[in-house]
Amino acid sequence: MASTRPVPFARTVIGPEARSAVDRVLESGWVTTGQEAIEFERELADYVGASRGVAVSSCTAGLELALRALGLPRDARVLMSTDTFCGAAGAIAHAGLTPVLVDVDPRTAVPTEENIRAAVREVGGVSAMVVVHLGGHPVDVEAAAAAAGLGLDHVIEDAAHALGTEVGARRVGSISRATCFSFYATKNLAIGEGGMVTTSDEDFADTLVRTRLHGMSRDAWRRYRPGAGWRYDVADDGLKANLTDVQAAIGRAQLRRFGADQARREAIAARYDAQLAGLPSITLPPRPVEGRHAWHLYAVRVQPGFPVPRDELIELLSARGIGTSVHFIPLHRLTWHVEHCVVPATGLPGADEVFEGTVSLPFDQNLTDDDVDEVCAALWQIGGIR
């Protein structure tokens, strides 16, 4: 039976302030990387407490650039969770490095310190690690680095879900060597596409600025301004991975409303919690013991006692007009990743357990209370309780 109130998995809302900012950029005659991107970099770095921000075309591109900038030997091993988006492992491989997959805690869906130590022992050590704040759940980055036998200068954070996450009292973006954010259409700060790398290492930031645009010593903004020189050098191997001023204008406007959007996300998560807490055989997302969850996702776990398995639940919700997703198919279940990543001989049972039951419910700051109530009512009905 179709719902009387269709609820999509996520909606992107670009408000009037952002639209006006885009018009201003279009009228300026300069639409690629320029002053708008520079201001966005400064504002986002200030927000997370980092010295520098480097705007890039995507979080994935940011991960690759940051990993390249570590200067590791070719094929050096980089530890990462198997329970994350496939692009992170691709970034490691494209940087000439080898992804080593680590298992996760079935409760939190992120690696424990023991998971990390076990994975490192099996491969005889790693040179770096990518820490993923899955769904916005904070990971103790310092503890994870210590478990891997690494300093924070060899840790890159995948914070695609984690703008607004806090580890203890520190905002994600100011803890490790570099942190990579995403502004994809479904993210907490949505532009449509784009990303940012934040760091407090000035030399590291300068390397990223060059390598995001083919390794050129001076970008177009610095070459085409009145009185500027046209010459440049290429001393680094780079990518085409810059962010445009059009995108940056949207991002700056979205950042100004980010605090209110995050407060709404927290309220939506609390409403889901209150209505689903008593639903048998559905486990709610864990709350962090310390720090702050960014609530990029609201992922519940369907336990064996529920009347229908996870995949059938997704189909039944879809028939009611309710969109869902699964975050994520573990990397060791994907063909390319099995061939190009180091997978422990003992398998990754924690991630397998998480995957079999996980379903991400509709979640963004634009959901109304009625939307949340509609989703919860459908879950209770399918559960055969109401």
Rank of each mutant, 00 (worst) to 15 (best):
S3T: 11
T4C: 07
T12V: 12
V13G: 00
E17L: 07
E17A: 12
S20G: 13
V22Y: 01
L26C: 10
L26N: 12
G29V: 09
T32N: 15
G34S: 08
A37N: 06
A37G: 08
A37R: 13
I38P: 10
D46M: 09
D46Q: 14
V48I: 10
A50N: 04
S51L: 15
A55Y: 09
S57K: 10
E64F: 00
E64Y: 01
A69V: 03
G71Y: 04
T82C: 13
A88I: 09
A91E: 04
L101T: 06
V102P: 06
P106Y: 02
R107K: 12
T108V: 02
T112H: 00
I116W: 06
A119Q: 01
R121F: 07
G124H: 03
V126G: 02
S127H: 14
V130K: 08
V132Y: 13
G136N: 07
D140N: 12
A146S: 09
A148M: 04
G149T: 03
L150G: 00
V155D: 02
E157Q: 07
G164S: 01
G168V: 03
A169S: 14
R170C: 04
I175R: 01
I175A: 02
S176F: 08
A178P: 10
L189A: 07
L189E: 03
G194H: 10
V197I: 14
D203V: 12
F204L: 02
T207W: 06
L208H: 11
V209R: 14
R210M: 05
R210S: 01
R210N: 00
T211E: 02
T211A: 00
G215L: 05
S217L: 03
Y224D: 13
R231M: 11
D233S: 15
L239V: 11
L239I: 12
N242C: 13
V246P: 06
A248E: 07
A249V: 07
G251K: 06
G251P: 06
R256G: 09
R257E: 14
G259E: 15
R265G: 00
A267N: 04
A269I: 07
D273R: 13
A274M: 07
G278A: 11
G278T: 09
G278R: 10
L279S: 05
H293D: 15
W295R: 14
H296E: 15
R301G: 11
Q303K: 11
V308F: 10
P309E: 05
P309D: 07
R310T: 08
L317N: 03
I322S: 01
V326I: 15
V326A: 04
R333D: 12
H337D: 11
H340K: 10
V342N: 01
V342P: 00
P344S: 00
F355C: 05
E356V: 09
F363G: 01
Q365M: 09
N366I: 04
N366H: 15
N366S: 15
D371M: 03
D371Q: 02
D371L: 02
V375D: 06
